[in-house]
């Protein structure tokens, strides 16, 4: 195998790629939330539509960015499946009695499941908006119309919370995988991971809640 192939196929290489893609995806989420919050900042929807138009203004560059983003997701998801399968294989005969000693958390033990839920949600999300023909005519209107339905809105709130659970382990874990573990930084990184998870979860959950509640108040604007 080639040098890069050897490095990437090793257990440590896979960890490093997992952490790196995870970080970049968090970066994407931050910018995505920044764009989406324009829906609440300006209830008329104009600011959000201008933001969408601004992104579309990049033309072919936007397509390149979208392909890059898709690659990040694919690499992250592929490694998640592969690591999970390998880890299941590594202990085929399990313990009769199992006790945790305090290292693992709900977030760390459910990474595969929270990740799978986020993947399922991502497919729904793309179908709801990105691949809906009506999206580019008036994006804000389509968002408002979709999230006014409590079923859709609650699904999005749930997805936001799952992202929070995923990041409660993932953010700190990515630093460790990339080799950052220092007594002077660890307390800050642990707190930062929880803050990032909390802010992204509540930020993303706020948008469907806002549209669902304003629709139920009979005030769709």
């Amino acid at each position: 195998m080639s040098r890069i192939g050897n490095a990437l196929a090793s257990s440590v290489g896979k960890k490093i790629v997992m952490g790196l893609t995870g970080f970049l995806l968090v970066g994407f989420l931050v910018e995505h939330l920044h764009g989406n919050l324009k829906l609440i900042e300006d209830p008329s929807g104009r600011a959000f539509n201008e933001y969408v138009a601004f992104l579309q203004g990049f033309g072919p560059l936007l397509l390149v960015a979208e392909l890059g983003l898709a690659l990040l997701f694919l690499a992250h998801v592929y490694l998640a499946f592969r690591l999970t399968l390998e880890n299941l294989q590594a202990r085929r005969s399990g313990y009769v009695v199992r006790a945790r000693r305090g290292g693992s958390t709900t977030g760390s033990l459910t990474m595969f499941y929270s990740g799978a839920l986020i993947l399922a949600y991502l497919v729904k999300h793309l179908l709801d908006f990105r691949f809906d023909a009506r999206f580019f005519a008036d994006p804000a209107a389509l968002v408002k119309q979709t999230l006014a339905q409590p079923g859709h809105a609650l699904a999005y709130v749930g997805a936001a919370l799952v992202i929070g659970v995923h990041l409660s382990h993932g953010f700190r874990s990515a630093f460790q995988s990339l080799g950052v573990n220092h007594p002077g930084w660890n307390p800050l990184l642990a707190k930062l991971g929880m803050v990032v998870a909390f802010l992204l979860a509540t930020g993303f959950a706020a948008i469907p809640l806002y549209f669902m509640l304003s629709a139920s108040e009979g005030n769709p604007s």
Partner: peptide, 15 residues
């Protein structure tokens, strides 16, 4: 040797 991959649970350090 067929060991699993580390996913940073840190149970090892506790044990």
């Amino acid at each position: 040797e067929g060991f699993g991959n580390c996913t940073n649970h840190f149970e090892c350090m506790a044990a």
